[in-house]
Design a protein around this nucleic acid. Structure first.
Lengths: 228, 228
DNA sequence: GTACATTTCAAACACCTGTTTAAATTGTGG
DNA sequence: CCACAATTTAAACAGGTGTTTGAAATGTAC
């Protein structure tokens, strides 16, 4: 059934582009089916519901990406001495760029979809992702912990989520940013360029020195008195 | 007309909470008016349209925050020697926390709204913001440039947007993150705590060493061959 | 070629959206 | 109290949403 020109594929291809551009909630099934040149009802026939279509669109990439990432994480975990942060983050590059084999502009589209997935806080997406791929991310956390042994677990938690925010936001607004960069600095930037710029940024961010309690309390008292 | 219990205020208060929680597009006027206990038509009567209501909700905070930020930026720009990044970023703390005077939980709500504003890419919001407050942000760029004189302008552009993504995403998903942190690490985290954690993170990120061309080209060839 | 399952299709479904209308109500200055 | 403006109200508007239906078309195995 996986004909490259089947109705399913036409729907998935149309849906992913529109989802990436406009977000999940702001893309209607009628937009999708008219771009795919298929009947409106075929979405519900083949995928059941819009919710399941969204998951199918993401799954097409995740099913390729996550095992590749898992493989890279496992390889790094097997190393004798702990890896530094740059090494850990760099393993994302190849698997991400291989998504261009799944689909034209696959890397860009997938990362945009990821951004949309977190922006429209669709509860089911978060569950879907953690349920299927939580184990893989645990390995990443372990690697980062090994790379930054001085970082308290709580601090690491926040910094990983900060970093997720950086990636997700950057990708969601990728087109707009790339246009501005082109106009203001005359540098052509593609998705690969952005990924390579992110690595040193995130690397330094995650490994940033943890402020001591005394440093925090310089500003803290003011806050407590002004709250509410 | 600015009675604290007027219809306008009831609408604004209900709207900001729902917008922050669910996003602009996913919050209906009927949800807002029923929470505010006013008639549906009063939104269009008092604000004209939903678009203008969104801007009014944001404006209530921006009109307080931005002059305060402008004042801080100007003060720092007048200093004899250039300020370091930590000093520059720290000036955000006080003006942001003063938003709690505008409204209960004002700081958290405003930052969540900011996140929503960039997530639902409503073109009019970007325009609205740049049109009214572009000048203020130019001063911030100047300050960061002075703090990081070795950073090429193009790189600085990207890193500031990366940082915006960090803040915006973190705030948009703030509730969810705080809950997880509470459950997993048993640390109560409020908006002030998040802001204070962000500063060293962003500071290190923006000032990260710029990779040399030779470092990039180690991974680049593979990309070019696989990209389409 | 006939029987059966799969897939397509146009139409309708029930519901939700932002906005507008015109009448009823309330507030206000003379 | 009256006249006039400002505000509130219920109702309807036109259009969009995801989903369902039942008949038509197509594919497939015997």
């Amino acid at each position: 059934m996986p004909n490259k020109h089947s109705t399913q594929y036409k729907i998935l291809d149309a849906a992913q582009s529109l989802f990436a551009e406009t977000g999940f909630n702001d893309t209607s099934l009628r937009q999708i089916t008219s771009l795919a040149e298929v009947n409106l009802a075929s979405v519900n026939y083949h995928f059941g519901s819009k919710k399941e279509l969204i998951q199918a669109v993401l799954q097409r990439y995740l099913i390729v990406l996550m095992p590749r990432l898992d493989q890279e994480f496992t390889r790094l975990l097997a190393a004798q001495q702990p890896n530094n942060l740059n090494q850990v983050l760099t393993v994302f590059v190849k698997p991400l760029l291989e998504l261009n084999k799944v689909n034209q502009n696959g890397t860009r589209i997938f990362l945009q979809l990821l951004g949309r997935g977190y922006a429209d806080v669709q509860g089911h997406l978060r569950w879907f992702f953690n349920h299927h791929y939580g184990r893989v991310l645990d390995k990443l956390v372990l690697l980062v912990q090994q790379a930054c042994p001085d970082l308290p677990p709580g601090e690491l938690f926040w910094r990983l989520h900060f970093s997720l925010g950086t990636v997700v936001f950057t990708m969601a607004s990728n087109e707009a940013l790339a246009e501005i960069a082109q106009a203001d600095f005359n540098e052509k930037v593609d998705i690969e360029g952005v990924i390579l710029r992110l690595i040193p940024y995130l690397s330094a961010a995650i490994a940033a020195p943890v402020p001591t309690v005394s440093q925090i309390s310089q500003t803290a008292p003011m806050l407590a008195s002004e709250g509410r």
